[in-house]
Design a protein around this nucleic acid. Structure first.
Lengths: 235, 235, 235, 235
DNA sequence: TATGAATGAGTCTTCATTCAT
DNA sequence: AATGAATGAAGACTCATTCAT
C-alpha cells in the first residue's frame, strides 16, 4: 500500500516537472522512440560526445520538432535514468516488504536489477556513466534515488548478518561487492548474449552467498602462500 | 676558427636529429603535476564536463603555457590511463609467469589491481568512465591494452577450471565477476578509507574463490523458493 | 487512423533518406551573397588574413548563422573556385569539340577565360593566390581540374604546331605564355576598366599568334646586340 | 651616379630599420640560411600557412635563437622580397640608363627579371603571393618598389611606341602583357628545368615584340570567323 | 507538429612574441 | 648565441537553445 502510493507520487512529480501539457495522442510514443534512439547514441559516444545535431540525424527530425519532444538534452538523461530507476525502485520496495529470508529477498532484488539491465542495458550504461552531467535538482534527485536504492540493499545485508547468514564483516564491504557485480553487468551485457537475467542472478548469488557465508573457507593456505611471496626474496 | 667549425658541426648534428622535443629539466615533474590536477577535475566533473579553461584555473597557467605541457586535452586522458595501465600490465605479466597455483596468481593479480587503484583511484575512475573520448589510435591502443589485460586473467581462469579449482562454468562468466568486483572499487575507494588493498584483495578473493569453488553449495533450497515465488500468485 | 498511419509512413520515409540537408528556400541565394562578400574580403586581405570574425562583420551574421551557411571557411574557397572553374571547363570542352581551326578555338578559349575573369575577377584572383590553403580532397580536386584545363589547351597547341601555324617550339613553352597572359589578367582587371574581355582576347591573341607564328621574325639583330653587350666591357 | 646613390640609400634604410647591430661574424650567413629555409617553406605552404614552430623545426633552432636571427616573422617576408627586388631594381636602373634602343633595353630587363627568378624562384613566388601580409611601412615600401619597377618598364614602352617599334596601342595594355609573361614564370620555373633565363627571355621577347610590332598581322580573318561564330545560330 | 534561421557563449587549439636565464 | 617557459589574443568551429513562421 505504502509502496504503491510512493510510486504514484514519484510519477506525478515527474510529470509535473518537465513534460509539457496538452499533447496529441502519439506524443508519448514518439517521445519514447526518441529517448531510445538517443540512448543508443549516448551509449556509443557518451552523453557529452553526442550533440543535438546527432540526435536530429538519428531521429530524422528538425531542430524545432526535436525540441518539441525533448525539451532539453539534459531532460533526456533524466528520462533515461527514470525509465530504469522508477520501476526498479518500486519493485525493490515490494520485495523488501516481503516476509522472506533476507537471502531470498536479495536474490529477488538481484534478479530485478538484472532484469532491468537486460531490458535496457544501454539505458543503464548511460546513466551509470553520465549521471555526472545532470545538474541542479536533476542531479540531487538522481543521487537521492541511488541512495534510497542502496539503503534498501544495506538493510537486507544487515538482516543477513544479524541472522548469521553472512559473516559479521563490515556490511558495506559485503554490499559493495553485491553492487559491483550487478552494476558492471551493464558494461558487457548484450540482449542476444548467452545468459538470461535469472541465470546470471543465480550465478551471482551463488558466488556472493557462498563467499559471504559465515562458514566460508577463509583460505588460510592461500593467504599464507601470498604472505611468503610478499617477503623479499632473501638469499 | 676551430670554435666556429665546432659550433657548426653541433648545429648540423642537432638539426639532423630534429631535437627530441625541446623540454628542459623539471618539465616532466611539472607535467605530472598538471596531469594529476586534471585527473582530479575529470573525476569530479567528467572529462567532457571539464574545459581547458577549467584546467587553466586549477593549474594557474595561461593557455599557451598549459599547452606547452599537455599537447592536447585528449593527451591527458592517454597519460592518465597510461600511468595506471602500463605498470599494472607489466606487473601482471610477471605474476602470470610465476610457477604458482592459478589461485595464488589470481590473488596476486587482484592485489596488484587494487594497489593500482589505491595509488591512483581517480585516475582509474577517469579512464574507466571516459576512455570513450579517446579517438583514433589512442582508442585502439587503449582497447588493445584492456584486451591483453583481460586475456591474462582469462588464461588463469581456464587453468583454475582445468585443475578443478573452479567449477566448470563458462570461464567468461567467472572472470566477468572477477573484473566487476575489482573495477568498481575505483568508484568508491578513498585513500583514507578503512580498507587497505591487501585486505580488500583477501576479501574479494575469499568471496570469489569460495563462490567459484567446484564444491560450493548450489543453494538449491534458495532457488526452489525463488521458483515458487516466481509463479503467479493464484488464489 | 488513416492520418496517423500516413504521418508515420512519411516519417519513416524521411528518416530513411536522412533528409537532404535541411535548407529552406532562399538559402542558396543567401549563401551566394555570403560567398561573394567573403570573396571580396579574401581578395583584399588574403584568405589566411581574413578571419571568420571578419566574415561575421561584413555579413552581419552571428557566428552560428554564418556557419549555418558556409559549413567551413575552407568550403568558401572551394565554392569560389568552383563558381569560376565549373562553367569555364564546361565551356572549354564545347569549344575544343568544335570543328574549327586550332587558332579559332584558342581564340574562343581565350575569350571564355577572360569572360570568366571579367565576371568574377576577385574570385579568380582569390583562388589563384590561395588554392594552397585547400586541404586534402579539396586540393586534389582543384589540382585535377586545373590539370584538365591545361590539358585541353595543350592539345590545341599541339594541333597548331602540327598544322604549321605555330613554330615547332616546345609546346609547353608556348602554352605557358598563353596561360601567363590570361591568368595575370585577374590581378589588374577591373570591371569598370577600359577593356572588354573580347577586346583583351583579340589583343592577347594578336600578340601570341603573331609571336608564335612559324614565320615570325626571329629578331636576330636584336639578339646579336644583346650578345655583344653581354661580353665584359674590355678596355 | 644618381642610380648608385639611390641604391645605397635603400641599403642604409634597410639596415637602419630592422637589423640589430653588434653581431658576431657568422651572423649574416646564418641569417641568410634561415631566410632561405623559411622561403622554401613559405613557397610550399604559404606565409600564413607556415608557423614559427615550423620554422623552428626546419632550422633546428629553439624559439629564442630563431628570434635572435629573424626579429619577426614579417621581417622574413621583407627580407625575401628585398633579396630579389633590391638588386633587380638596381640592375634595371643601369639598363634603363643605357643608350640603346628601347627594344634592346626591354630585352635586357626581361633577362634581368628572369635571371632573378632563376636564381631564387621560390623567393619571387613567395612575395608575389604573400606581399599582402606585409603591414604598415613594410607594405608601403614594397608597393613603392613595385611601382618604381613598373614605371621604368612603362617608360621604355612609351619610347618604343614613340619610335614606331610598337603599335600605338595603350601602353598599359602592352606592358601588362610584358609583366604577365615574366611574373608568371616564377610559378612554374624549376632551377633544373630545360630553359635557361636567356633562352626564356629571347622566347618571350620574340613573342612580345613580334606581337606588338606596328606591322604585325591583325588577324582579320580569324576575328571575322570569331564574329561569325558569335552570332546566334539562326535557322 | 514541424521547420530551419539565428543566437552567442563556449569549445579546443595555435599563434607570434617576450623574457629570464 | 641559445634555451624553453610563459603570455594572452586570436584562430576556426560547435554547442544547446530560441523563435518567428
Amino acid at each position: 500500500m505504502t509502496t504503491t502510493g510512493t510510486v504514484r507520487d514519484e510519477d506525478r512529480e515527474r510529470r509535473g516537472r518537465g513534460r509539457p501539457q496538452g499533447h496529441g495522442p502519439g506524443f508519448e510514443d514518439r517521445r519514447r522512440e526518441i529517448v531510445d534512439l538517443a540512448t543508443a547514441l549516448f551509449a556509443e559516444q557518451g552523453y557529452s560526445g553526442t550533440s543535438v545535431s546527432d540526435l536530429m540525424r538519428v531521429t530524422g527530425l528538425g531542430k524545432g520538432a526535436l525540441y518539441h519532444y525533448i525539451e532539453s538534452k539534459e531532460n533526456l538523461l533524466v528520462e533515461i535514468s527514470s525509465q530504469v530507476m522508477t520501476p526498479l525502485i518500486a519493485r525493490m520496495r515490494e520485495i523488501v516488504a516481503l516476509e522472506e529470508s533476507p537471502l531470498v529477498r536479495l536474490r529477488m532484488i538481484s534478479e530485478a536489477i538484472l532484469d532491468g539491465i537486460a531490458q535496457r542495458p544501454e539505458h543503464v550504461w548511460v546513466y551509470e556513466h553520465d549521471y555526472r552531467y545532470l545538474s541542479g535538482e536533476n542531479r540531487t534527485r538522481f543521487l537521492q534515488q541511488r541512495h534510497d536504492f542502496e539503503g534498501l540493499v544495506f538493510q537486507l545485508g544487515n538482516e543477513a548478518i544479524a541472522r548469521g547468514l553472512f559473516r559479521g564483516s563490515d556490511v558495506r564491504l559485503l554490499m559493495f561487492q553485491f553492487f559491483s557485480l550487478h552494476k558492471q553487468t551493464a558494461q558487457w551485457f548484450h540482449r542476444d548474449g548467452p545468459w538470461a537475467p535469472s541465470e546470471l542472478s543465480r550465478e551471482y548469488c551463488r558466488t556472493l552467498f557462498n563467499g559471504f557465508a559465515a562458514d566460508a573457507a577463509s583460505l588460510d593456505a592461500l593467504e599464507n602462500r601470498i604472505e611468503t611471496l610478499r617477503r623479499p626474496t632473501a638469499s
